[in-house]
């Protein structure tokens, strides 16, 4: 690991916090996308069932 000098904890916290926030945003975006996709699939199947009836 490289030497970060006397203020390494600030640098680590800045990068760590940013990484955490960005990863959380990515995770949330993916989960939201998948959930919506699944929900849409259910609804479209229901509509198809309604229309063939």
């Amino acid at each position: 690991m490289i030497e970060l000098g006397q203020h390494w904890e600030f640098i680590a916290l800045a990068y760590g916090g940013t990484a955490l926030a960005v990863l959380a945003a990515i995770a949330w975006t993916c989960i939201d996308a998948e959930r919506t996709k699944a929900h849409l699939k259910v609804l479209e199947a229901a509509r198809a069932a309604r229309e063939t009836r």
Binding site: L4, G5, H7, F10, I11, T18
Partner: peptide, 11 residues
């Protein structure tokens, strides 16, 4: 600024 300049790359 020493190594603290590295924070600029996310800021």
């Amino acid at each position: 600024m020493g190594d603290t300049v590295r924070m600029m790359y996310v800021h």
